[in-house]
């Protein structure tokens, strides 16, 4: 059986800087993989290449056995991979429900015009990430950071992904909000979702992943279980400052 996501020999250069250096990893269906590394290690650049927001210089990206490097970002999303962003990017003047509506839309102008929005699905998604009924009409300016992350999750889930890439999903959250988002991820894992998660919050990340890979300056320096990776000397030297 082919992997849900297979990244092979990925290279991305920005001028003289090698942001991703011959990176290869795979992610099985239903698996949750942590991608860790210090600031500037190139984690978000990997996400951007998987989503097609940045084009790699070389290497391949396969989703369920199909090479997706030639596809645009919307096409990749339709193929089943979706991401959240480190800094949430809501549609500021739209309500929570309308934000989710954009994620639910078909990429087909005729259907956008002639078929009505699925307000029940919008509601379901909003409630599933922890919003209340009253929140549906609120705008992002009225939401706390934790709510904005939930909104980002809901809009990403609305695109019906099979593989979700979560970028710094706990950044700026309170302990309570972290627990809420963690519960949501755990319940989605139970439902079979495949995750690639970037987080600096290692204690929060640990229970959410089956294994981890660590990168530094775009190069993989360790791979294995969370504890194996954290005990790796190279990881400790680079990521934890040799602690």
């Amino acid at each position: 059986m082919s992997a849900a996501l297979q990244v092979s020999g990925l290279v991305k250069r920005f001028g003289g800087l090698v942001a991703t250096n011959d990176l290869s990893f795979s992610l099985n269906e239903g698996e949750s993989l942590g991608l860790i590394g210090p600031n500037g290690a190139g984690k978000t650049t990997v996400f951007s290449q998987i989503m097609g927001e940045l084009r790699q210089n070389s290497g391949t990206i396969e989703l369920f056995g199909k090479e997706i490097s030639a596809l645009s970002t919307p096409q990749r999303i339709r193929a089943g991979v979706s991401r959240t962003y480190q800094i949430p990017r809501p549609f500021g003047d739209m309500s929570v429900a309308e934000n989710i509506r954009v994620g639910l839309m078909p990429d087909d102008i005729r259907r956008m015009i002639f078929s009505p929005p699925d307000t029940e699905r919008e509601r379901e998604l909003a409630l599933s990430v922890g919003f209340s009924e009253e929140d549906l009409d609120r705008t992002p300016t009225e939401l706390a950071m934790g709510d904005l992350r939930k909104l980002e999750m809901a809009r990403t889930m609305a695109t019906a992904p099979k593989v979700m890439l979560l970028d710094e999903v706990f950044a700026g959250l309170t302990t309570g909000e972290i627990a809420q988002i963690s519960d949501l991820i755990q319940s989605m894992r139970k439902d079979g979702m495949t995750f690639l998660i970037v987080s600096h919050d290692l204690p929060a990340l640990e229970p959410l992943i089956d294994r981890a890979i660590a990168i530094e300056r775009g190069t993989m320096i360790a791979e294995g279980s969370f504890s194996d990776v954290m005990n790796d000397k190279a990881v400790q030297a680079s990521y934890l400052g040799g602690a």
């Binding site: 339709r78 509506r101 954009v102 994620g103 839309m105 956008m112 015009i113 078929s115």
Partner: peptide
């Protein structure tokens, strides 16, 4: 219609619209 919502969304954050698969 949803088209109007999508066009307004482009004005608010075009990258997020692409990131929503459109």
């Amino acid at each position: 219609t949803r088209l109007g919502t999508a066009l307004s969304a482009i004005g608010m954050n075009e990258e997020s619209v692409r990131g929503s698969g459109l």
